[in-house]
Design a protein around this nucleic acid. Structure first.
Lengths: 228, 228
DNA sequence: TGGAATTTGTTCGTATGTATC
DNA sequence: CGATACATACGAACAAATTCC
């Protein structure tokens, strides 16, 4: 185990034990350097792990904070979006996925037009004994809000972490739009290509937005992000 | 966008375009330093991102390689529920789950008979810093829809494919509620403790639910969740 | 077989930029 | 405005794994 991992481990243990929970503050990076006798780079790599694991949040210009107990658990499983696997260990799921037009075949099956967009998801499960391939076809128009309630969780939590104003409600919108010139440049797509626009609005007690999150994502080629 | 992000983006694009796929090799870090005129630290941070995104694999003493085309990307990221992290430490989630009889222990906790069936789900999460184990116990009688017509995406698709009833919409809700007596017993919390209620509804063309999934989870102690 | 060369992995130090208070 | 603290970036050194001759 390398040094930065040991430090991450130690910090993690201390957080779990509650050593730092008073005031929800962690020593700053400089202090941690002294404490562990390590360089800033190493300290930051250690903290990176904790941030990834949602144990710690960083606020630029402010400091390090013990995060609320957000799970790094797969929220898909939590919300039941993902199907429970029938068998257990060491299995991995690979996938590919993309938007495409329905075409003749799926348009007949799904009773939609041939040029309507469908979300095409491929699962490949590697078991010790066999390989299973599953394909999921979802017409976009039928699943306009599929993952929104899940999205709420992380977004709300992130804002709550900031702790400035109280978020009492959350609105979310998700649209499939076509790229204008500006979007095309930013997302490296052509004009009129389909892109996703995601708007998250956090509202205070008076119903006024106190935070706004906009996301635009290439709907055709992006490999890592999919919202529908 | 910072330099290491730009480099990561550029490399990602080139990989997608296929510029490097010949021989499945990427230029080594030294070459990349020259190419981008950046320091090794920055180059490595860029590659960190691609490694996280499973586009690139590293082999010590050997070099950098374009990863296989099918990504092992976390499904959370795939669905856009979770943003891709810029750094990550190879965590993995394994789980097992099965139906079993309650037995003495759980029958007492859940106030059911010893031979009643429960759905037993085990999560084990390997982080670089820690190991987390989570268990979810669901008496079948309290979750009658869980294993069959639940709302998991794939199940929806199966329903579509089977052509029994057409699912044209999907609703998901997530609420934070307080536990009543029954919930308190089932989830082993105290009355009025916060718990999450997750409702998944599959709707037919008339807007009527044809499948329903309910889940209740301890909001304080399960790692999923946070005290709002 | 064995050692040199190559390449990634880890750690250090330092400097500058940027957000917050 | 100045002090504080995180964000980014540069350069350097050594360790560890692999490859090659």
């Amino acid at each position: 185990m390398s040094l930065f991992e040991k430090i991450a481990q130690d910090l993690s243990n201390k957080i779990i034990k509650g050593d730092y929970s008073s005031g929800s503050v962690l020593p700053n990076e400089g202090e941690l350097q002294k404490t562990y006798g390590a360089s800033r780079t190493t300290i930051r790599k250690a903290i990176d792990i904790l941030v990834t694991n949602k144990q710690v949040t960083r606020r630029k210009g402010v400091g390090l904070f013990v995060a609320p107990e957000i799970s790094t658990q797969n929220i898909l499983e939590m919300t039941g979006i993902m199907k429970p696997d029938s068998l257990s260990q060491g299995k991995q799921i690979f996938k590919e996925h993309y938007l495409r037009k329905a075409g003749n075949y799926y348009s007949q099956i799904l009773n939609i037009k041939t040029d309507e967009l469908i979300y095409y998801i491929n699962f490949i499960q590697f078991n010790s004994a066999s390989i299973t391939k599953e394909t999921l076809i979802l017409p976009l128009k039928n699943f306009p809000e599929l993952s929104l309630s899940s999205l709420k969780i992380l977004t709300v939590l992130e804002m709550m972490n900031l702790g400035k104003e109280k978020v009492v409600d959350l609105e979310q919108e998700l649209q499939l739009i076509v790229a204008d010139k500006e979007n095309a440049k930013q997302l490296n797509v052509r004009e009129n290509d389909p892109i996703f626009k995601i708007v998250n609005r956090a509202l205070n007690a008076k119903g006024l937005p106190i935070a706004l999150e906009l996301r635009y994502e290439n709907a055709l080629q992006t490999k890592y992000v999919v919202d529908f």
